[in-house]
Amino acid sequence: MNPPALVLEHVSRHFGGLKAVDDVSLTIQPCARHALIGPNGAGKTTLFNVISGELPATGGQISLFGEDVTRLAPHQRAARGIARTFQITKLFPNMTVIENMLLACEALDRRKLVMFRAVSSYADLNQRAAALVEQFGLSGRTHEVARNLSYGEQRKLEVALSLAGRPRLLLLDEPMAGLSAGESTSMHAMLEQLDPAIAVLLIEHDMDIAFAFAERVTVLHQGRMLTEGHKDEVSANLGVQQIYLGMGAAE
């Protein structure tokens, strides 16, 4: 049997006395659609940072596809199949859309260290980058600098970048945040079309989207796992908890 895409065992991240992530254990199977929910400050993004390696864990162990990656740097984890998006858009603002995409495409390619040949001469790289740009509906903006894109376009590019490396585990940090209703719907449609082979862990505020997208749901509160299970179980439990968590009302 294939190893799980991601296994967290008693993972913690403390900032001094603050336990941003505390003793979280979680398993994500290959091909899973998994949502991570919780109120603001629950530690969702911190947990993402710990999984992707931006922040080292202060305790516990992280395994990617059966390999212990707890001590590995972000780029080493990326090379092992993990990719992520950021809640606050992280693009290359003064580079064009196609340049953004080319960077993402060569990230896990050995040719990223080639110095004495123009990147434009690599037809396959350019084609793949162009295809991704088109797939995300940005082909009209290919040569625009990322800084000049609309917010919705930037969010699309944000997700597109994370897919360029053909990840096996994708961490999506509120891809719909701040989008208009229309944009949000089209983003959701894009997420639904993701290659089923990719395991996806989604942070989402909107309960409806989270439960529509995911099979399994984890609820995080004050850094700790409150509950984890199939979306039906969790949603059944959630009635009581919503009051306690103050979730949903604002959403």
């Binding site: 740097a73 990326a78 990719a83 992280k90 693009l91 290359f92 080319l102 993402a104 990230a107 990147v119």
Partner: peptide, 23 residues
């Protein structure tokens, strides 16, 4: 102009993103 040169500009623009992309 090379793939490597592109990565340098990427680092200038957003090193954090470069790392998480796998550089």
């Amino acid at each position: 102009k090379s793939p490597f040169g592109l990565t340098l500009r990427g680092i200038r623009e957003n090193e954090g993103r470069m790392k998480s992309l796998g550089f």
